[in-house]
Design a protein around this nucleic acid. Sequence first.
DNA 1: TTAGGGTTAG
Length: 636
Amino acid sequence: MNQRSSPSPKLNTLLQPLLNPQAPVLASTYAPIFQFLTGKNLLKQGQQMHAHMALRGLRPTAFLAAKMVAMYASSGDISSASYIFHATASPSPLLFNSIIRAFSLYKLSEKTIHMYARMHSLSLRGDNFTYPFVLKSVTDLYYVQFGKCIHGSSLKDGLEFDIYVGTSLIDMYVKCGELGDAHKLFDVMPLRDVSSWNTLISGYMRDGVVDLAKELFENMPKKNIVSWTSMISGYTQNGLVDEALRLFDEMLSEDSEVKPNWVTVMSVLPACAHSAALDRGRKIHAFAREKSLDSHPSVQTALMGMYAKCGSLADASWCFNRIKLNDRNLVAWNTMISAYSSHGHGLEAVSTFEDMIRAGLRPDGITFTGLLSGCSHSGLVDVGLKYFDSMSTMYFVEPKHEHYACVIDLLGRTGQLVKAYNLISRMPMLAGASIWGSLLAASRSHRNLEIAELAAKKLFVLEPDNSGNYVVLSNMYAEANMWEEVNHLRALLKSQGVKKNPGCSWIEINGKAHLFLGGDTSHPQYKEIYKLLEELPEKIKAAGYVPDTSFALHDISEEEKVYTLTTHSEKLAIAFGLLNTSPATVLRITKNLRICGDCHTAIKFISKIYGREIIVRDVNRFHHFKDGLCSCGDYW
DNA sequence: TTAGGGTTAG
C-alpha cells in the first residue's frame, strides 16, 4: 500500500494476510479490503490492491468483482468498474446490482436499463437493491411505459411489500407526471415509512397541488427534516414565499428533534430572494453561520442569489469569493454572472465569464443568458454579439429562445430596430412574447411607430390580457396625434375585458415589508405620504425636473396625468421610506413591473435632494440611485 | 438502496 497514506488500524488488520507470501490467495482476503476502500475516494489504493491481486494470479469471482465494481464506481472510475463487470464470465445478481448502482449513480440511465434487461434475460431476479436504481434511470429518461412494466416485474419478483421499491415506484410515477398512479400505489402500500409520505408530498408540490401536499404533511404520522424541507421548498417554488418563511419559523420553534440542515437553509433562501427581504435573509445567514451550515458551496451559492436579488451586490460577491476556487461549480459562476448583469455591471459579468473559462468550466445556456443580458443592460453591443456568435462555434451551446431575446433586446435598446426585426425573422424558432415585448419597448423609446405596430400586433395575439402592450401603442399613437387609432385601441381594450395589471411596490423596513399600490390611500400614514409627494414636484422642479407625462395613459387632462404620476407605487414606497428611516439609511424598493420613465427621473432628483441612496429592483433589473444619477446610466 | 436543493431574458 501507499506508504504516504496512513492506513487505519482496521485496514492494517485486513492487509495482514497479504504480508505472508505462503498464505493462499483467496477472494475472501481481498473482498473486505475492496469493501473498506469503497466510498472513501481511495482510488490509488484500490488500483494497487487490484494489481497485487492480478500479480498473484487471482481472477475475481463474481462476488469479488461486485466489490471491485463498487470500489471503482465510488472512486470516480466508472470505466474500470464497467471493465471488471464485462470481464466476469457469469455475473451474479450481486454483481448486476453493483453495476446497476454504478451506472445509475453516473446518470448512465440507458446503460442501467440495459443491464437490468440483461439480468432479466438471464432469468435472474431483481431484489430491493436492484429496483430503486433501475427506477431512478427510468425516471431520468421519462420512460413511463417501461416504468409500468418494471412495476409489474417487481410484483412478480415478490417485492410488493418492500418500502424501498414502493417508494421508488411512487417517485417514478410522480416525476413522470402520473400523480394519480402515484397516489393509488401509496394508498395500497401495505407498509409506508416517512420517505413514502415525503415522496408523495414533493410530487404534489412539484405539480403545484399545494393543498394536497399540505394535507399529507399535516396528516403524516411522523415528520423528519426532509418533510419540512420539502414543504418549505415546495411553497417557495409555488410562489408562496410567506408560507415558506412561516413554516421555517414554525420548524425552528417546534421543540422537536428535527434540526435544519444545509438543504433546509438553501431551500428557504429563495423565499427571501423572491420578496427582496434583505433583513430576513441576513438573519437566516447569521443562523446558518451559527449552526455551521454556511460552509457548503451550495449554501454560499443560495446566499449569493439571495443577496443579489435583495439588492446587495457587495454581499453576493463576498459570498462568491468565500467559495474555494475548486468548489466553484457552474451554478456558482452562473449566479455571480447573473448578479453582475442584473445590477448593470456588464463589464464585471464579462470578466467573471472569462475567469470561469480560465478556471476550466464549460458554460451552459444559463451562463449565456446571464452574460448576454449583462451586455444588453450595459450597452455592450459588439461584445454581446461576439459572445452570441461564439456560443455554438466555441462552446457548443445552441442558442435558444432566451438567447435570441437577449440579443434582440441588445440591438433594440441601441436603436438598431430593423436589425433586431431581421434577426427575429431569421430565428430557427417562433418568437414569443418576451421578444416582441422587448422590441415594442425599444420601438417606444426610439419612437419607431412602424415596428411598434408590428410588435404590438403579435403581442395582442400572444398575450391578449397584458394591458401594458395596449397602453404603449396607444400612447405612441397619441404622440403622433393619431386619435382614431387611439380610440380604436381603447375600444379593443374594453371589448376584450382587459384589466390593467396593477403596479405595486414594497419597501422593507426593520424586517417588515410595506406594500403600496398605485394611488393607494389605504395606508395608515397615507396623509403624510401624500403631503410629502405633493411638495415634492416643487422641490425637484427647482432642481430642474419636468414631469414626463408620456408615461401616463393619454385619456386624461394634463393635471390629472401629473397627479397619476405622483402617486405611482414606487414613489409612495419611497416617500414612506423617507418618512420612516434615518437619513443615512439606504432605501430598497421592489416593484412588480418595470419602473416608469418619469419615476426614474424623479428618483434621481430625490436621491440628490435628500442625499439618499435608493435601490430599486424592477422586474428586469436593479437601479442604484445616488447623487442624482442612476447606475443604469439611463440606459434601460 | 428510497424522499428535500442553489443559477435563467423581458
